[in-house]
Design a protein around this nucleic acid. Structure first.
Length: 268
DNA sequence: CTAATTCCCTGGAAGC
DNA sequence: TGCTTCCAGGGAATTA
């Protein structure tokens, strides 16, 4: 599923293709995604100013506002000839002359929204926590967030108001690399270990983004799987298999309605 | 305020 | 082979 590295890879892929380009047409085949796609006809004739990202939201800026796109868990964007026949799950597209930027999303957990004002003030974005790769995400900050809660540390990492873009895969892997049990109450993790965790979150995301740029043929790689990152996963999706570091059998259980894997030998 | 639960949706895997 | 069942997941909305 698209996590932050995939969304960032997508952003880097589409930005040079649509920046400065004029929207010549727009098609909504299935408006019912996570929320109904609003009327966007006014976009035809507008030029793309910039393509940015906040959390897992792609922000396509125009003079009159910003198109907000979320890929949900099965969404992907592709840039292809406008006359290419659409797939059953190709729900939305922006046309740029002979090309189209097309959103495919089989499970329809994604979203296409419009923000007239500054997109960072949009209701879905306004109260999000810091970007994990920014300097605002540091150990003192995480400690302040952790000390006043009792939820499992893994849930804390996946709470958007605390830090964004850390989904199940990267939360699971960074906790392994930090030696912290995912079910440990967040206020019972030492400050020193939180510092390690912050470092590992950044490292694991940076590595994945880097590989998104080098290993991936291009951003149009879709298929809903971690793909390029899968071969180096230590615990995610490896329940019952052997830990690559200590040989213990990887365990898994539900934490906050999400499957969480960990190594009983490496994580406390 | 925090925390726990429900819900949206469908492809793919597993079971029969 | 074909059917049914279950699970995955981001994150908003709802309830406690």
């Amino acid at each position: 599923m698209p996590e932050l590295p995939e969304v960032e890879t997508t952003r880097r892929g589409i930005a040079p293709l649509i920046q400065g380009k004029q929207v010549t047409g727009l098609v909504v085949r299935q408006p019912r995604l996570r929320w109904e796609i609003p009327p966007l006809d006014q976009l035809v004739g507008e030029h793309v100013c910039e393509v940015s990202r906040r959390a897992k939201y792609l922000l396509i800026g125009f003079d009159t506002g910003t198109l907000i796109i979320h890929l949900g868990m099965s969404g992907s964007l592709r840039f292809l000839p406008a006359n290419a026949s659409p797939d059953r799950h190709d729900h939305f597209e922006l046309q740029f002359g002979p090309h189209a930027l097309r959103l495919r999303d089989p499970r329809r957990f994604g979203a296409v929204l419009w923000s007239e004002g500054p997109p960072l003030q949009h209701a879905l974005i306004r109260s999000l926590g810091p970007e994990p790769l920014s300097q605002d995400f540091h150990s003192d900050y995480l400690y302040q967030q952790a000390r006043r809660r009792r939820i499992p540390i893994k849930q804390l990492l996946m709470t958007g108001g605390v830090v964004v873009g850390v989904g199940n895969i990267y939360a699971t892997e960074s906790l392994f690399l930090s030696g912290i049990h995912p079910g440990r109450a967040c206020n019972r993790v030492s400050k020193a270990r939180l510092q390690t965790l912050v470092e590992q979150v950044k490292a694991v995301l940076a590595r994945a983004i880097q590989q998104g740029g080098t290993t991936l043929r291009d951003f149009q790689h879709e298929d809903g799987k971690p793909g390029y990152f899968q071969q180096q996963l230590h615990v995610y999706g490896r329940e019952g298999e052997t830990c690559r570091k200590c040989g213990s059998t990887i365990k898994a259980k539900q934490i906050g309605q999400r499957t969480s894997a960990w190594c009983p030998g490496c994580q406390r």
